[in-house]
Nucleic acid binder design. Structure first.
Lengths: 210, 210
DNA sequence: CACTTATCTGAGTATTTGCTCAATAATTGC
DNA sequence: GCAATTATTGAGCAAATACTCAGATAAGTG
């Protein structure tokens, strides 16, 4: 049944969990879905399997979630919140007191840390689950905030900080992604790789622009 | 029906197209599938839609392809062949006569070129279609060949050529991917980005190692 | 307890979709 | 022309799966 043909007819209301028992049910559903996503990916995520794994009936799933996508929505929400937390922590640093070295080290370390936690889930969410437009927008906004914050931090140290910040963030994100999540075939260990990544970014930021 | 539960029972043989009419049918099926993949992605690719778009009946589809995945297999095959062609062309260059500048310029230009051609299909194949193990292996092999070839080219110019080649290839691939395929939200134009990418890779390769 | 509200159940419905097969048509070889 | 081979058709089967609903059970309230 995969897709509703002509847009959802605005079905019935979902219930808000009031009692503790119900909140447990909701959490069980989310946990089960997360595990299935990490283990079998989007293709393995079906409502019957979710209910079975959560130890509840399908009816309960639809009591608290409008549809399958709504469950994933919550999972993505919680996942993005982690990235936003890292960003808030970095924003609290005193810009004047950190060196260029520190900035880049923190950048690389943050991305590595983010990707190291539950790589299977991260992979499923970023490469498997079909994201809605608003989910994509939220990810894009997080990226842009990171770039903006980094650009501010770079301003005392380098020319063209916005451009450089874009390159730095995209490179750090794309490469940690590839090394920690995507493949299984890097002959070089990830620590060595992220060390090289830091070195490369350093050289790039320090270089005089053309 | 999505998935056969207990491994394919080794069904009936697929037919080999002998007459010109049949070869047209096969091509029409592949073309239709490619278009659907590029336009609607994996989720929109179903056998009835393929048959309709190709102007043939479902029966014909299964006359020449064991199942839906077999069609995608051919598409991926042809797509990878392009990458392999680039690699062969690069391998024909005289190693002694090219400068470090040329090597990196060619690397970046090749990746840009590869990703610019039919980005929608590229995206569907690399982020949407669930790849089989052997398909992943083939991609991995192509990546490794590229790294090996680049490492050889770098040997006269830099220390630790294998490590550097790995970084270069992964960076070029991941970033062109992101800029040309993934998003739609880069405020900086792709040409500028690839120029910066080339600059960064140059600096990295030229730097004395620690 | 009696009553109301919240929660849960799971067999069943509606739909999608991969794929088959018996019948029909076109092409080729003689 | 006439078989044999190759090609095509499309209704329909079987399985998967998102989601519903009528009724059972538990919890809160007086």
């Amino acid at each position: 049944m995969q897709k509703r043909r002509h847009e959802k007819p605005a079905r019935k209301q979902v219930r808000q969990a009031r009692q503790a028992r119900a909140r447990n049910t909701v959490e069980a559903i989310i946990t089960a879905s997360t595990q299935i996503l990490a283990g079998q990916g989007w293709a393995g995520l079906n409502t019957n399997a979710i209910a079975r794994r959560a130890g509840v009936s399908v009816g309960s799933v639809y009591e608290y979630f409008r549809n399958k996508e709504a469950i994933v929505d919550v999972i993505i929400d919680r996942h993005l919140a982690q990235g936003e937390a890292y960003l808030r922590a970095a924003a609290d640093l005193d810009a004047a007191s950190v060196s260029l070295d520190d900035i880049i080290t923190l950048l690389v370390a943050s991305f590595v840390e983010l990707h190291r936690h539950d790589p299977a889930l991260h992979r499923a969410l970023s490469e498997d689950v079909p994201l809605t437009i608003s989910q994509r927008e939220r990810i894009q906004a997080l990226r842009q905030s990171t770039i903006d914050l980094l650009a501010m931090a770079l301003t005392p140290h380098a020319a063209a900080p916005k451009l450089k910040a874009t390159i730095l963030v995209d490179t750090a994100d794309a490469l940690t992604h590839r090394w920690l999540i995507d493949d299984a075939g890097t002959p070089v260990p990830p620590e060595k790789m992220s060390q090289e990544l830091g070195k490369m970014l350093q050289l790039y930021v320090r270089a005089a622009q053309v």
